[in-house]
Amino acid sequence: MAAPPKKATEAVPEKVHVWPYLVRLEFLCAIIVTVFLTVWSIVIDAPLEEAANPTKTPNPSKAPWYFLGLQDILVYFDPWFAGVVAPVLIIVGLMLIPYLDVNPKGNGYYTYTERKAAIWVYCFGFLVLWIALIIMGVFLRGPGWNLFMPWQYWDAHKVVALTNVDLPYALGFRSYNSQTIVGGIIIIGYFVVGTGIYMFMERKAMQSVGFLRMIIKIVLVLIMIGIVIKIVLRLGFNIKYVWVTPWFNI
């Protein structure tokens, strides 16, 4: 929807009384939601499985559905990233949005043309990295967290060959130390080059936006893109890790 022009209608007053105009809307909305919730609760029962049994692990074991995006990232990343760092980055990154996005346009109305980049980044993060992965985790992940299409039988004995190798190995580096160094160069190089290109292309904005804002912005975006790159590397090229160190693997 385009921005409504200012003072489109002179005749109607700009402000209206909350009572009755807003309160009646809220009341109507509350009735509809309550009726909907009541009918839903009568028709569909909440699940209750057999009693908790710590000796009997179900396969697959799934987190609550709203965390399945993160659980799916576990395929591509170690738990310290998928389970701890990624959620923290999501929360902190979301909180930073108003302080990173200094575009004054698009405040209080729907617009795509005035803030294309912001809309793209948010929609990508929310709809692809969050919602799409949740849908995949709920419906397509079966026993062993293997991928099953909706028409396929969830075979608990499905054998999937683990042929993944680390990226430096695939590039021909065989010793542990050289792999660590090459992996480090790739990861650090990705961020340095990515940041450098962004800073160069947006160098005119440096004055108005500020150095710190631009750095944080591009690093967060590069991490988001990096997650997708890692997914593609794993699914398309059987790459397990890009960077293996004695302390952590990426």
Partner: peptide
């Protein structure tokens, strides 16, 4: 129940890392 215990096991296992 089983659903509860294992969902929370999966979720909280992350804190180990």
């Amino acid at each position: 129940d089983q659903l509860a215990m294992w969902a929370v096991t999966v979720g909280t296992n992350m804190a180990r890392a």
